[in-house]
Amino acid sequence: MNQPDELDLPVEGGTLRVLRFGRGPRIALAAHGITGSGMAFRAMAARLPEEWSLFAPDLRGRGGSAGTPGPYGLERHAKDLCRLAEDLGAGGPVALTGHSMGAYVALRAAARQPGLFDRLLLVDGGLPLPVPPGADLDAILDDTLGPALARLGRTYETDVAYVDFFRAHPALGPYWNADMEAYVRYDVTGPRGARRSKAREEAVRHDGRDLLTSADLFAADLTGLRVPALLLHAPLGLLGQEPPMLQASVVERWTGRSGSLPAELTEGSNHYTILLGTAARTVADRFVGLGG
């Protein structure tokens, strides 16, 4: 299941590159993070039962979909997920998951067309994030995403240099494995001597600003959610240390007092290793089990 098929599937205004892991009849759809690609789900997909097929699109402006035109934004990505679910599900329900920004996209898709999906697994994302009024959104993105965003404006002499940049990342390097390497190598493009990420910075910043200013929309989606859902969240954040991506007060607001969303802290993981490290087994198991 580790080597995906690469498909180009239709969406409004073009196509999306979609990675298919597995050949089983049970269909899953997965949305990746803000600077990532469908290859982020390689480790999880390898741990799904044989009867599953996981389809992981490269969202517009990323991976093999870097050239698919905008507009960008979480609503557009959610529409794309719904279109893929309609086509791939062939009238049957699709299991849905998303990581980081992809969790917000998946939440939007499930809220838009709940009849398409029979479950929703949010992986370290999907909860409204508090943003101070008048805040500089691009500065927040720079501070929060750090190396993940900084790499988009750089070039690298070789693929090895690009991999080495990731291996120096404090949330990845200490836990480096074959799934991380595959994820990084899938992302690199460009001419010899000027290799770079496939992700388009304008798409990343547009989507990031959209995410930061849409808390009320996500709150409404969560409150009215009609799809069985679960949140898995990591105790450590994007730099492999505290604070986590979803801070305790935010998680408590949506999973504690109200009890509207079940949640599980995935011990020993950070924002990236919850999906790309050994915790991928937990993610796969909870995804399968969420369907009852």
Score class of each variant (00 low, 15 high):
residue 2 N to E: 14
residue 4 P to Q: 07
residue 6 E to A: 14
residue 10 P to H: 00
residue 11 V to C: 12
residue 15 T to D: 12
residue 16 L to A: 00
residue 24 G to K: 07
residue 29 L to C: 05
residue 29 L to H: 03
residue 31 A to F: 05
residue 32 H to K: 09
residue 34 I to Y: 00
residue 44 M to Q: 13
residue 48 L to H: 08
residue 49 P to S: 04
residue 52 W to Q: 03
residue 55 F to T: 00
residue 56 A to I: 07
residue 56 A to M: 07
residue 57 P to L: 03
residue 63 G to L: 04
residue 68 T to M: 05
residue 75 E to L: 12
residue 77 H to K: 01
residue 77 H to Y: 10
residue 81 L to N: 03
residue 84 L to A: 01
residue 85 A to S: 12
residue 88 L to R: 08
residue 90 A to Y: 00
residue 90 A to D: 13
residue 91 G to T: 00
residue 91 G to S: 01
residue 92 G to D: 15
residue 96 L to E: 02
residue 99 H to N: 05
residue 100 S to Q: 03
residue 103 A to W: 07
residue 105 V to Q: 06
residue 113 Q to D: 15
residue 117 F to G: 05
residue 117 F to A: 06
residue 117 F to L: 06
residue 119 R to H: 06
residue 124 D to P: 11
residue 126 G to N: 06
residue 126 G to C: 11
residue 130 P to Q: 03
residue 132 P to V: 01
residue 133 P to S: 11
residue 133 P to Y: 09
residue 137 L to W: 05
residue 140 I to G: 04
residue 140 I to E: 05
residue 142 D to V: 15
residue 144 T to N: 12
residue 144 T to F: 14
residue 146 G to L: 04
residue 146 G to E: 04
residue 149 L to Y: 12
residue 152 L to M: 04
residue 154 R to D: 10
residue 156 Y to G: 06
residue 156 Y to I: 09
residue 166 F to V: 02
residue 173 G to S: 09
residue 179 D to Q: 08
residue 180 M to Y: 09
residue 183 Y to V: 06
residue 191 P to Q: 00
residue 193 G to W: 07
residue 193 G to H: 08
residue 197 S to V: 01
residue 201 E to Y: 11
residue 209 R to C: 09
residue 210 D to K: 10
residue 212 L to A: 12
residue 219 A to S: 13
residue 223 T to V: 14
residue 223 T to M: 15
residue 227 V to R: 05
residue 229 A to Q: 03
residue 231 L to N: 01
residue 239 L to N: 06
residue 247 Q to K: 12
residue 251 V to I: 13
residue 252 E to K: 09
residue 253 R to M: 02
residue 260 S to F: 15
residue 261 L to K: 02
residue 265 L to M: 14
residue 266 T to M: 12
residue 266 T to I: 14
residue 269 S to A: 14
residue 271 H to G: 03
residue 278 T to A: 15
residue 278 T to W: 09
residue 278 T to H: 13
residue 281 R to V: 14
residue 282 T to E: 14
residue 283 V to P: 00
residue 289 G to H: 13
residue 290 L to T: 09
